[in-house]
Design a protein around this nucleic acid. Sequence first.
DNA 1: AACAAATAAATTGTGTGCAATATATTTGTG
DNA 2: CACAAATATATTGCACACAATTTATTTGTT
Lengths: 151, 151
Amino acid sequence: MQDAADWLKLDVQLCFRLYAASRSMTRCYQPLLAELGLTYPQYLAMLVLWEEDSLTVKRIGERLQLDSGTLTPLLKRMEQAGLLQRQRRIENEREVRVCLTDAGKALKEKAVAVPQALFTTLNLTLEEISQLSHLLDKLLHNTAQTAAGSE
Amino acid sequence: MQDAADWLKLDVQLCFRLYAASRSMTRCYQPLLAELGLTYPQYLAMLVLWEEDSLTVKRIGERLQLDSGTLTPLLKRMEQAGLLQRQRRIENEREVRVCLTDAGKALKEKAVAVPQALFTTLNLTLEEISQLSHLLDKLLHNTAQTAAGSE
DNA sequence: AACAAATAAATTGTGTGCAATATATTTGTG
DNA sequence: CACAAATATATTGCACACAATTTATTTGTT
């Protein structure tokens, strides 16, 4: 009985650490991103668009592992903020193409300071970051849902 | 210019991995917890209460790093579900004491299967889990807010 | 061409997270 | 005792996440 109960201790649970660490890191981003007028998920969407502009909602969702239920309102708010434009494609009217505005593109300059500041806050060695990234990738791979993770 | 822009690539960002991994793991828990009638944050609250029953909202919040804005409605839903009871303490009426009901205590038996199933899904070695836990703890420590992390 | 199946977004509803504020109670100080 | 400061919880408002459903469009098949 005691053996089985040990599995249920909070401190033993890897998942709680992951959950707490993710939220803790997002909280670190928050004041930095507030200066750019972005939330953390909005920042992720901008990262994707800065890398490759003019993507469909579906493509952004694949990169961020988010569905339209999350992305549609998020992108609408970013459109309201003047960072991007959403328009149905003429070739395929099911799709909505998302393009950065000049303001959206310009924000990239200021954003460079964000990951650099985070790196300082994290205070992990490059070796530790590399290890952590590797382990998280492996975990992501093993937990990926067959439905969502279609590549 | 190119150097600075490299900091803004999604795949480089540790934080995105953490964010994606946390959500991916929660999705793995979801079908298992659905059988217990719990969401993931509710499961975490139960873990804390199974370990030590009759805690204040504040104490639960310290364990889970959640504030009353999140916990109050969450605990109310769990009370509705018959898993616990919330009552103002007589000694100090600012505090609310949270106690498991018999149903809440009994649920522990079924819950033991959950972390075991997750361990199988994760498919990580004990060594890898240990490493990951250690790195996440370090990250958590370094990102902890001075305000919230009062011990 | 006709139409079922597939696809892409949008919508709806529920449950977090969290900042900011409000309320009630207790504690500390003169 | 009076009363400001501190404490614990609750409330409000906003922004995700995500399951489930709906809507509109395109594709595949006959």
